[in-house]
Design a protein around this nucleic acid. Structure first.
Length: 158
DNA sequence: GCCAACGTTGGC
DNA sequence: GCCAACGTTGGC
């Protein structure tokens, strides 16, 4: 099993929005970066766990855990001219972009802010904390995942 | 709103 | 294939 961090702007699609979807499940559409796409398309599997990260907001941080429930399939918004994610180079015959389905799993007792994570030496190598990185889909080590979960569940101070 | 850090585009 | 210009991300 692998662990991931996925970013979403809460004003566009929040962790609570995911919970409110039918079956608390939705497709992760709109990824338009090749490295992020490759992670989703080539490495994500059903059962993988995801830190749901709120980006570009007043207090960025991890709201809770989601689970991958469907492996990658073509992102149909990419060939929809009306979609904000439209890419004329992607077609149903030759899709360029992919998405997975994720299901809401667990809300943290405490929202784990970016500042909280920066205070943890064991998270020093976590990608989301590295300067200049902006991948919206990132692999997370098991230790990093467990640490963030403990922080979010309030089992540790800080 | 600012702006550093990236990624993409396109002329050459 | 280089690289300047441009667009986007996302913390602050």
């Amino acid at each position: 099993m692998k662990y991931w961090l996925m970013k979403s702007e809460p004003t566009v699609f929040s962790f609570d929005d995911l919970k409110g979807r039918p079956g608390s499940t939705d497709s992760w559409e709109g990824v338009r970066n090749y490295q992020a796409r490759n992670y989703m398309r080539d490495e994500m599997k059903a059962g993988d766990l995801v830190l749901f990260y709120h980006s570009n907001c007043e207090v960025p941080g991890v709201a809770g855990i989601a689970e991958v429930v469907r492996t990658a399939y073509p992102d149909h918004t990419s060939w929809n001219p009306v979609s904000m994610y439209y890419d004329p180079k992607s077609t149903p015959q030759n899709p360029r972009w992919f998405m997975v389905d994720v299901r809401w799993k667990e809300a943290f007792n405490r929202y784990v802010t970016l500042t909280d994570m920066r205070s943890r030496p064991e998270l020093m190598k976590m990608k989301v904390l590295q300067k200049g990185q902006r991948l919206s889909v990132q692999p997370v080590s098991e230790e990093e995942f467990d640490t963030v979960c403990r922080m979010g569940r309030g089992l540790e101070g800080g």
